[in-house]
Design a protein around this nucleic acid. Structure first.
Lengths: 225, 225
DNA sequence: AAATTATGTAATCACTGTTTACAATCCTGG
DNA sequence: CCAGGATTGTAAACAGTGATTACATAATTT
């Protein structure tokens, strides 16, 4: 009998190392951002040798991509749930709901949002799931946009550009929070999340057809940066 | 005579290693983005031992911060030059000029824009110069915004929110390009730069008071992502 | 039961940021 | 002008990283 050297782990072949590694990586992301993830540390936390992860992931990027897929799925759920639970069928309100849910998730899960939005960390093109979830969100925005135009609720006729502007605005707000451009800002009375939402609503009012735009005069926000 | 071990370099103490290291790091950034920078490689290119850089920079972040300062200075110059060489004194046109110059520089210097906008790479707070240049750009935007409001050229009364929206939009556009969210997009007829400019102009039209907004119906842009 | 395949380990490689002890050069005050 | 301290370089080391390799063990198929 060869007397197993380290029989500490039962069912020696671990069974579901892949999932455990992803969970460990998720935890590392939450603890200190994407930069805090190391394959070795994930392996250590899974109670496995440093080379073991490479039986399940071609490289670190593949592991990060799996983390991103998990995060993206939650991200998409939050958004689709939010828009489904919106009372009205007003397309502009539905559009706003998407943006607000987007910002809410991004600001509350900054490290994970960083993972799913920074392409250098992951292998976006190789992941069906990432593209699929992303497309679902995009389609949600486009759908409400098209419907809003059909009802003549938009100021501009060019929904393509309006849509890109909307995406860029929301993405920009999320990243400005995450990249730390709002240092002074969050210190002020308003939370970053609240302010981001206000700005989004401001934008929504701008694209709308209503002659009376948001005239809530001054929130006297500290200037960002 | 102790016969210098490696007298290959004249004026042995190199004279201006600090600048040479920054230049090497800049080159590395250009070659492969911020992730391509290593202190050791910069040292090698400067013809110096791996420990030498730490006589001039406390750590890698300090080196990257120096790189960022140089980039930020160019970034600011491009923007201030652009707005100064704008013919009209129309504040909204001046505002648009800032945004266009911003996008132009970011898209043409993506790796450097990544350096100056990703706070995890640099020590933003410790750099007077970074804050100063950033504030100059911000003030430029705010100035034109305030003036536009004074002339009653804006739709909304809340310039604070409009200003944040503008910043977020431009930042979002720049980062979407850089983070690779426009893959299919750039392949289409329009360059990323042209499209980003169009979207910016679209936004500028939206915030303006003119009843007739941009009605250039369809550019039939491929959808991003 | 034997052969094959999947999945782990151990050792190793090249590379990274950073620190330490030491050496060479420069600068300045007597 | 030169003694001595401050600068600024080197060499060697350390711990950590992603990744590969040869090998061992467990699960699975034949």
């Amino acid at each position: 009998m060869p007397k197993a050297k380290t029989p500490r782990r039962t069912g020696y072949h671990h069974g579901n190392l892949r999932e455990v590694l992803i969970d460990a990586a998720v935890q590392l992301v939450e603890e200190g951002g994407p930069g805090n993830v190391s394959v070795r540390e994930a392996a250590k936390r899974a109670g496995v040798s440093p080379g073991a992860p490479f039986r399940h992931f071609a490289n670190k990027t593949a592991l990060m991509t799996a983390v991103a897929e998990q995060a993206m799925s939650r991200f998409r759920s939050e958004i689709t749930n939010a828009v489904e639970s919106v009372a009205t069928d007003d397309p502009i309100e539905r559009f706003a709901a998407v943006g607000i849910a987007y910002l809410r998730w991004a600001i509350r899960n900054p490290t994970h949002f960083q993972v799913i939005s920074t392409r250098s960390l992951i292998d976006w093109d190789s992941s069906e799931s990432l593209r699929h979830d992303n497309e679902a969100v995009r389609a949600l925005v486009e759908g409400s946009m098209v419907e809003a135009q059909r009802r003549n609720m938009l100021r501009s006729y060019d929904i393509a550009e309006t849509q890109i502007a909307a995406r860029a605005l929301v993405y920009g707000l999320a990243r400005m929070c995450i990249d730390g451009h709002f240092a002074q800002w969050a210190v002020a009375g308003h939370t970053a999340e609240q302010t981001a939402q206000d700005v989004l609503k401001h934008f929504v009012a701008l694209i709308g057809n209503e002659p009376e735009t948001a005239k809530k005069a001054d929130l006297t926000l500290e200037h960002p940066d």
